[in-house]
Design a protein around this nucleic acid. Structure first.
Length: 547
RNA sequence: GGCGGAGUAGCUCAGUGGUAGAGCAGGGGACUCAUAAGCCCUUGGUCACAGGUUCAAAUCCUGUCUCCGCUACCA
């Protein structure tokens, strides 16, 4: 079997403390589109999503609900996988930081850093909220009475010191800066890259990677004496503490590639081609993570893409704690799974923040999906069926013969380039420019006029009618197929209406290279029977749709 | 405070020296294949403000105002 290009991409793992909102799933939808695109291209693709389940905060939340941490996160994980399923997300593995192979991987990474001399015992100092643990100054309020925890203003903060293991991040400052300079595409978009570069140049401090008191976490594998913290019965010495969540969470990306558990797989999948993450965790992924990998003798990821946030009107940040989230289930009910995927990725540029609103989503759905694209397919299938019978008309494929074919030859490369460059909103814009061209083509050709003339015996009109409708059917085919990563449920239904098959599996695997399929006239030689024109995206009445 | 970015039509944005643009929203029209969709036309802007350079500035320079991002251990 010839080697296919491989493509390994991940999302950030979701913090399993609340049920997921659209602002969390947004990133997963975008990454799923990229994963599907690579599968459709024929790349050997591995896509990882999952949940981050350790930390003191999780244990506190669980206690608030009267649950053991494990039972608490199990429930959260179920909500997350349900939401992913409802949105057509297709991870090749849904990883949990409580998975046994991940626990082993994180502990091995600590051992490797220790063996490399990058971990040492030190003292961590900071404000400590008895209810939440150590807090950064930026998370606290300074009042006349001193510093306060915003969540527990009545509980006095304590200045505590804790004996912790530290990771020697400072040792990697020069190598990190060189990595940024030598690989300008590794951290993107550019303005995020510049921010991270500035942070590096400002000087890097070592950071603590263990938590002494915490019990809900991965046991720290090394004791203060430098020996293993594992006891003869296999249990871990609680005195060694647990691994700080970031030295746990990031490692999921290599666990999911087979680190430790499957060295052959790991050799094939690592380094990852793409980590898709939010701007709030850019530093961990572009600075801490490469250094952690290098310390263990592994390669840094090839690319980290940093997206923005969904904001409410006025720029207010959406967050679980404020409760001002879009519930994905409400959106799926209104727009369907594909409609939700589309409006989220079209309304929010994948490289920056955007304000979103229910009204804007409805407008976008109606304008792009119902009116422009859905109606194009509907009028095309309807006319072709009525004027030409059930046989699918063939497009004009001779060079220069079809204006739409020519337009497509410019649309496709632009679409692919933007998609592979993570500019998903611009990829859709390119595709929809072509949809507009197809709608204008209909009005220019006026097939209904040609049909009357043909019926009256005008052979020239009959030929022109057949050609125009052939081009239009082909335009619908290539757009529907190209949009399949965004609209995975719609694509097969659309192609069926056109009398074409959709030669890919539910996750996009197993078919011919999509770039071959997307050539204008790529299936022109095949005959087919048109299906019934059924609206793909029913228009929504703005008044009747509740947010 | 430091570094970086932004301020252009009601909204979202493109436009880095040569007569202000797109999409959406609003208004009008012709058509009728279609999901009252599509198509055509159109209203709408002292390009944040003030200076400066230039034959010419949204664009280059200086200053001011406003907003935003980053400025390390919640994740």
């Amino acid at each position: 079997m010839p080697d296919r290009p491989r493509y390994y991409l991940t999302t950030a793992i979701a913090y399993a403390n609340h049920k997921p909102g659209l602002h969390t799933l947004y990133e997963v939808i975008g990454a799923d589109v990229i994963a599907r695109w690579h599968r459709l291209k024929g790349d050997d693709t591995r896509f990882l999503t999952g949940t981050d389940e350790h930390s003191v905060n999780i244990a506190i939340r669980a206690a608030e609900e009267g649950l053991e941490p494990r039972a608490f996160v199990d429930a959260r994980v179920g909500e997350f996988t349900d939401a992913e399923g409802a949105l057509g997300i297709t991870p090749d593995r849904f990883i949990r930081t409580t998975d046994p192979d991940h626990v082993a991987a994180a502990q091995e990474m600590v051992r490797r850093a220790f063996a490399n001399g990058d971990i040492y015992l030190g003292t961590y100092e900071g404000w400590y909220c008895p209810n939440e643990g150590f807090k950064a100054n930026s998370d606290l309020h300074e009042t006349a009475a001193g510093w306060q925890c915003p969540n527990h203003p009545d509980v006095p903060l304590q200045w505590l010191t804790e004996r912790n293991w530290f990771f020697r991040l400072s040792a990697y400052q020069e190598r990190l800066e060189r990595w940024f300079l030598d690989n300008p595409g590794a951290v993107q978009p550019d303005f995020r890259r510049n921010e991270m570069l500035g942070f590096i140049r400002g000087g890097l401090e070592d950071f603590s990677i263990s938590r002494a008191g915490a019990t809900w976490g991965i046991p720290f594998p090394i004791g203060e004496d430098g020996q293993t913290a594992q006891r003869e019965d296999g249990s871990w010495d609680p005195e060694a503490g647990t691994i700080y969540v970031w030295y746990d969470a990031l490692i999921n990306y290599i666990t999911g590639a087979g680190f430790l558990s499957d060295p052959d797989a790991f050799g094939r999948w690592w380094p990852a081609d793409l980590h898709v993450i939010g701007k709030d965790i850019a530093r961990f992924h572009t600075i801490f993570w490469p250094a952690m990998l290098w310390s263990a003798g592994l390669e840094a990821p090839r690319k980290v893409w940093i997206h923005g946030f969904l904001l409410l009107r006025g720029g207010e940040r959406m967050s679980k704690s404020r409760g001002n989230i879009f519930d994905p289930h409400d959106m799926i009910e209104a727009f369907g799974s594909d409609g939700t995927r589309y409006v989220a990725l079209r309304e929010v540029p994948f490289d920056r923040d955007a304000e979103v609103s229910w009204e804007a989503f409805v407008r976008r759905y109606n304008a792009d999906l119902a009116n422009d694209f859905g109606n194009l397919v509907n009028r095309t299938v309807s006319m072709a069926g009525r004027y030409l019978g059930g046989e699918r008309p063939a497009p004009r494929t001779a060079p220069g013969a079809s204006a739409l074919g020519h337009a497509w030859s410019e649309t496709l490369p632009a679409y692919a380039e933007r998609l592979e460059g993570c500019l998903l909103h611009e990829a859709l814009a390119a595709l929809w420019d072509f949809v507009g061209a197809a709608n204008r083509f209909v009005d220019g050709e006026q097939p209904w006029v040609l049909a009357k003339a043909a019926k009256a015996g005008d052979a020239e009109a009959a030929a022109r009618l057949r050609d125009a409708l052939g081009d239009l059917v082909e335009a619908c085919r290539v757009v529907g197929l190209a949009a399949a990563p965004f609209l995975p449920q719609t694509a097969p239904r659309l192609l069926a209406q056109l009398g074409h098959s959709f030669p890919y599996g539910p996750d996009g695997n197993g078919g011919p290279p999509i770039l071959d399929e997307l050539a204008w006239g790529g299936r022109a030689a095949e005959s087919g029977t048109l299906g019934f024109p059924e609206p793909l995206f029913p228009r929504l009445d703005v008044e009747s749709v509740e947010g």
